[in-house]
């Protein structure tokens, strides 16, 4: 009975407090909403840039050349052998004839290759590399593994391309990590300081509650509920802002950059994540701010 009565008291007390401090509560939710939306937008941009760079990385390929032609049975066997090498994602056989076909397609309208027979170009395997093996050192190891295959005449790949891509990826990740860290710390700082205002406004109440024998739990519970309510408000606001900002960005940036603001998850999942983060931030902010005033 006592706990039900307490729960009823906590809820009514929290709602009454939110109502009487409505401006402060709104300010907290809006601040929380902006902070979360900025962080979420950063994450969306980062994930999309990372995804785009990953796609570029998919172009990291190695060509295996061998002389003569291969029967379909040999092609299947070679494919299995190539795909068995550590770091290889897939291997595609390119016969002499199809290599010439591709070349002619590339220079269509010109008669450069007229009269050239298909056997002039070597048959090859186009080997795609797994994402974790695209750095120069690991790629060299994969190439060394491929060179050990006896039937392979030569292996070609662009070491310079791999090195440049790797350095760009490393730079983007480092910059994102530092910026994300800065943004995360700033967000926590803003949230705790804003919520501290609401706690500070009720410091007399905390003192009197302690003096009449309230336990720590009894004092914290209404703040916990207020933190949840403010967090929900912040979550909703941040979701709205994120949609607004992304629609503005889509309208302002060129089409080829539109992929930057594509949501990496569904809108409902994004909404739930922002709500949960908002609630967690609201509750954590309340408790961090409250800790100071619990020493009365």
């Amino acid at each position: 009975m006592g706990s039900v009565s307490n729960l009823f008291y906590f809820i009514t007390d929290s709602l009454r407090s939110l109502k009487s401090n409505i401006l402060t509560a709104l300010f907290t939710s809006v601040t929380l909403g902006f902070a979360l939306a900025i962080f979420a937008l950063f994450l969306v941009l980062f994930l999309n840039i990372n995804w785009a760079l990953g796609n570029i990385g998919d172009n990291t390929k190695v060509m295996l050349y061998f002389s003569g032609s291969a029967t379909p049975a040999e092609v299947r066997r070679f494919t299995t052998l190539v795909e068995g090498v550590e770091g290889v994602r897939s291997a595609k056989y390119v016969s002499s004839a199809s290599a010439l076909g591709e070349l002619k397609d590339e220079f269509s309208g010109q008669d450069l290759f007229d009269g050239i027979e298909s056997g002039m170009l070597p048959a090859s395997f186009e080997v795609k590399i797994l994402p974790g093996y695209r750095e120069p050192e690991r790629l060299s190891a994969v190439v060394a593994g491929l060179k050990r295959l006896k039937w392979v005449d030569s292996v070609e790949y662009s070491a310079e391309w791999a090195a440049r891509l790797s350095s760009v990826l490393n730079f983007v990740e480092l910059a994102a990590l530092l910026f994300g860290l800065f943004l995360g710390v700033a967000t926590i700082f803003i949230i705790t300081n804003t919520i501290r205002l609401t706690v500070y406004a009720r410091r007399d109440e905390i003192e009197v509650m302690r003096l009449v024998g309230a336990s720590d739990f009894f004092i914290k519970a209404p703040f916990f509920i207020e933190g949840v309510v403010q967090g929900v408000g912040g979550g909703v606001i941040s979701f709205g802002l994120l949609l607004l900002w992304s629609s503005i960005l889509v309208a302002k940036i060129p089409d080829y950059l539109a992929f930057l603001v594509v949501m990496p998850v569904s809108l409902s999942a994004m909404f739930i994540m922002l709500m949960l983060t908002g609630i967690a931030a609201g509750v954590a902010g309340s408790f961090i701010s409250l800790a100071r005033f619990m020493k009365i």
Partner: peptide
């Protein structure tokens, strides 16, 4: 308030 902190109904 003095009774609420004691969990009185």
């Amino acid at each position: 308030l003095a009774l609420n902190v004691m969990g009185v109904g």
